[in-house]
């Protein structure tokens, strides 16, 4: 499927990743349409998370990882040497599998990135805390306890606070690495609802190995296997008319 150029915010062009000189991602190319949810699927160890980390250059933090290729954010290749990776990471936010709120108050957690970026205006910070927590659908639960430690919250609530911390930076893209796999079903369901509500403002890319979750929330699915991108299709097509034999086997539960 060819999307119009104006609708694509993020485009990966021939990404290769080496881990201790062993190639783990082989020449992946993929386009993420704006304001849609793309689910990256595949069995454990297929390279989904490594691929996701290419998109905000957090692989740079791991000395044993080497990335080659281009990732276009808008009209800018984020792997060109002059890229300001700190601004980049503010534009492309990331939520991890395990909720990792800092051992600070809820308020401090949400404004953490803003304060690092030099924002000191108390009024703006307070406003951004409210709007971010509202967007992460947790404002009503925590509005009276913003000065309490974030780690006193439940796992699902902590994950939402982390999401709010990311949203406070007003990113364009949100990356989520299996954000619900450590959560109970109720918390997972409400995070899913939140993501669907967020896609009108953000481009969302979620790594998941939960087929049902992908079918519920995504618009596009990219299926990976052993470091290769096997198939990319709109969600409905992916489930109803998978083209590749590996995809058919995966959907039939022959591995995974």
């Amino acid at each position: 499927m060819i999307t119009m150029k104006s609708e694509q915010l993020l485009r990966v062009e021939g990404i290769n990743v080496k881990y201790n000189n062993r190639e783990v991602l082989h020449n992946l190319s993929l386009t993420f349409p704006k304001h849609q949810i793309t689910a990256i699927m595949g069995p454990s160890g297929c390279g989904k998370s490594t691929f996701l980390r290419c998109l905000n250059r957090s692989n740079d933090l791991l000395p044993e990882v080497e990335v080659h290729g281009k990732v276009w954010l808008g009209d800018q290749n984020i792997y060109q040497p002059r890229t300001n990776i700190y601004q980049l990471r503010a534009r492309v936010g990331m939520v991890y599998q395990q909720p990792v709120p800092f051992p600070f108050t809820i308020f401090e957690n949400v404004v953490f990135g803003l304060k690092m970026a030099g924002q000191t205006d108390a009024k703006l910070l307070a406003m951004r805390v409210e709007s971010s927590l509202k967007a992460a659908a947790i404002w009503d639960e925590v509005k009276d306890r913003l000065q309490e430690p974030a780690q006193a919250l439940s796992g699902g609530q902590q994950q939402r606070v982390c999401l709010a911390s990311v949203l406070a930076m007003q990113p364009e893209v949100i990356l989520l690495d299996e954000p619900t796999s450590a959560l109970d079903p109720t918390s997972s369901a409400s995070i899913e609802q939140t993501l669907i509500a967020l896609k009108k403002d953000y481009t969302i890319i979620i790594v998941t190995h939960n087929l049902q979750q992908a079918s519920r929330i995504s618009d596009q699915i990219a299926f990976m296997l052993n470091g290769d991108l096997i198939e990319t299709a709109p969600t409905k097509t992916f489930f109803l008319q998978p083209q590749q034999p590996q995809t058919q086997d995966y959907l039939a539960g022959k591995f995974g």
Binding site: N56, S58, L61, Y86, Q87, R89, A90, G93, M94, Y96, Q98, V100, F102, P103, F112, G113, M116, A117, C162, S165, V166, M169
Partner: peptide, 15 residues
């Protein structure tokens, strides 16, 4: 100090 805190701070744009 848990490594995951570092990573989260980095992904929030920290130097």
């Amino acid at each position: 100090v848990d490594r995951s805190y570092w990573n989260f701070a980095y992904t929030l744009g920290g130097t």
